[in-house]
């Protein structure tokens, strides 16, 4: 088993400072946040440029080249509703440190993102969701099958499809939490990789609580077989938990300084 893959989530248009930097093509704030995340232990960086309807292609190319040239071809997850922008990003992407991740397909309107990933030999995050939130794991697994078949029909390896159970917010959907964890176990039993926006669980909670909830959930999810998550790597408690779980799972060899590497 490989190490848990941390995809850093902090390069996103949802952050005003990054949104502004993307719009103005200002490298400095983007590079600063990228460096913070990589130093903290992120493997991949998610580049969320939002819907980016007008200049998405140009923006994604700019971001990919900027980040890869500064950080030794850091592997990236390309995250936007603009498909052409993802293709443009991949066209300038260097694979030396890992395939690009297409973020993301679902089992409804965005299923074609799998085709795009297949055509470009990319990894694809596959959200096990159709229209609205799946009511139970039968429905999630049906979407999982649909997505898996779609990807494989287009020539993808199963390992390049990272299934996302869709983490749900505790405040409002507390009763669904164990379902999500069971769903991860089902992915794992099928030998599939998985990922997701794990910190979604603690949305709306006080700032001091979120790292605690996120850490507890990541530990439980890793026990179930989760292989990756899209998270904030600058959450120290979370990263310490992930590194510790990697030791327990045998994904990394323990050394006294394991938290520092």
């Amino acid at each position: 088993m490989g190490k848990f893959v941390v995809i850093g989530e902090r390069l996103s248009t949802t952050a005003p400072i990054i949104n502004k930097a993307f719009t103005e093509r200002d490298p400095e704030p983007v590079l600063k946040r990228a460096e913070q995340q990589l130093k903290a232990g992120a493997t991949y960086l998610d580049v969320n440029i939002g819907p980016a309807e007008s200049d998405g292609e140009d923006l994604m190319k700019w971001a990919v080249q900027l980040l890869q040239s500064h950080f030794d071809n850091v592997p990236l997850a390309l995250d936007t509703a603009n498909k052409k922008a993802i293709e443009a990003g991949i066209s300038v992407y260097n694979r030396a440190k890992g395939k690009p991740i297409v973020n993301s397909a679902d089992a409804a309107g965005r299923i074609e993102y799998l085709d795009l990933a297949a055509a470009n030999d990319a990894i694809c995050i596959a959200l096990c969701n159709g229209e609205g939130i799946a009511k139970d794991n039968d429905e999630r697994m049906m979407y999982c099958q649909t997505l898996l078949e779609r990807g494989m029909e287009h020539g993808m390896e199963a390992e390049d499809i990272w299934f996302d159970p869709l983490f749900l917010v505790v405040k409002g959907m507390q009763d669904k939490q164990m379902q999500i964890l069971e769903c991860i176990k089902m992915f794992s039993d099928m030998g599939l990789n998985s990922t997701g926006g794990l910190s979604n669980n603690s949305n709306g909670m006080p700032k001091a609580i979120r790292p605690i909830m996120d850490s507890a959930l990541v530990a439980m999810a890793m026990m179930q077989g989760l292989t990756s998550a899209i998270v904030n790597p600058n959450d120290l408690r979370l990263m310490e938990t992930i590194k510790s779980c990697d030791v327990f799972k045998g994904n990394t060899l323990y050394a006294d300084s394991y938290l520092e590497i």
Binding site: L253, Y254, A255, D256, S257, E260, I261
Partner: peptide
């Protein structure tokens, strides 16, 4: 001692 082998490498590089 594999854990110490790793630790020594980490300490030396640090």
């Amino acid at each position: 001692d594999i854990n110490l082998a790793k630790q020594l490498n980490v300490l030396l590089t640090q």
